[in-house]
């Protein structure tokens, strides 16, 4: 039973990690590419970390919770880096399939 649960978690994690990178390679413009790695990959690695916590808890007969630390870190940092990347791309006026926001104050100012 535990084995089955572990296998499902590992497989889900690996598939999501793969889909995140597939999105990175396949989608058309930078802003849509940003979505794949931020969401799919984060959940994928989250699944793998839960699997790891479960595996070491069962094997050593205690609770192994330090994997929570990495997932917590990942869930806090991945939106921050996505936000910064989007900001940098808006600043550089990277091409987009959607119309870029045009109102004053809606995009980062040009640096002097």
């Amino acid at each position: 039973m535990n084995d089955f649960l572990l296998s499902v978690l590992i497989l889900t994690g690996a598939i999501f990690t793969f889909i995140g990178s597939l999105g990175l390679a396949r989608l058309q413009d930078f802003y849509t590419r940003l979505h794949g790695p931020t969401k799919a990959t984060t959940l994928g690695v989250g699944c793998l970390l839960i699997a790891s916590a479960l595996y070491f808890s069962i094997r050593d007969g205690g609770v192994s919770l330090h994997e929570v630390l990495v997932s917590l870190f990942l869930f806090i940092t991945s939106p921050v880096s996505a936000h910064l990347l989007a900001k940098a791309a808006l600043h550089l006026r990277v091409k987009s399939l959607a119309t870029l926001p045009t109102q004053k104050g809606d995009t980062p100012p040009k640096h002097p």
């Binding site: 994690g13 990690t17 990175l24 990959t41 940098a88």
Partner: peptide, 16 residues
């Protein structure tokens, strides 16, 4: 930015 995003994804893949 595309290259930075790719590097970031590579880091997370390494983690996995």
């Amino acid at each position: 930015p595309d290259r930075i995003l790719a590097l970031d994804t590579l880091y997370i893949n390494t983690l996995a």
